[in-house]
Amino acid sequence: MRKLHVTAELNGEAVEFLCEPRQTLLEVLRDVLDHTGTKEGCATGDCGACSVLLDDRVVCSCLVLAPEVEGRKLQTVEGLADGDHLHPLQRKFLEHAALQCGICTPGFLVAAKALLDRNPDPSEAEVRYHLAGNLCRCTGYDKIVRAVLDAAAEMRG
């Protein structure tokens, strides 16, 4: 099958890859670009585990075809930490024990970052609505919501 050549920006760095038209962004991130932080849950856009930022908007990478990202800017969970310094969201998820099995965590972190980038001071209800597309079967969500609110407070200074 003829492959398509795609160039994009991933976590601030230029990347290029070859893909088949049918391949999703999720498949390419994990299997071609070796960015396995992004997880596959449902593969139907319901669970949010594969959330990434595409031009600063949070999307399910299972519902994006890889060739669609030509020339676009991508951010994944790997781009959150600055070297050894965790992003405040990551630190607060650890402090609040906002994860157990961890499969949903990268998606939650990326989706939460998208919220705080747009709204540095969200209410609890806003956090819950914003994260309604991310499913967690372990924590019961409360710790996640607290971690996001606490990270937002710290980031506001």
Binding site: G45, G48, S51, L54, R57, V58, V59, C60, L63, V64, A111, A114, L115, H130, L131, A132, G133, N134
Partner: peptide, 9 residues
């Protein structure tokens, strides 16, 4: 319509 992720698309 859908989640934040779906809204983006």
């Amino acid at each position: 319509i859908g989640s934040t992720q779906i809204q983006s698309r």
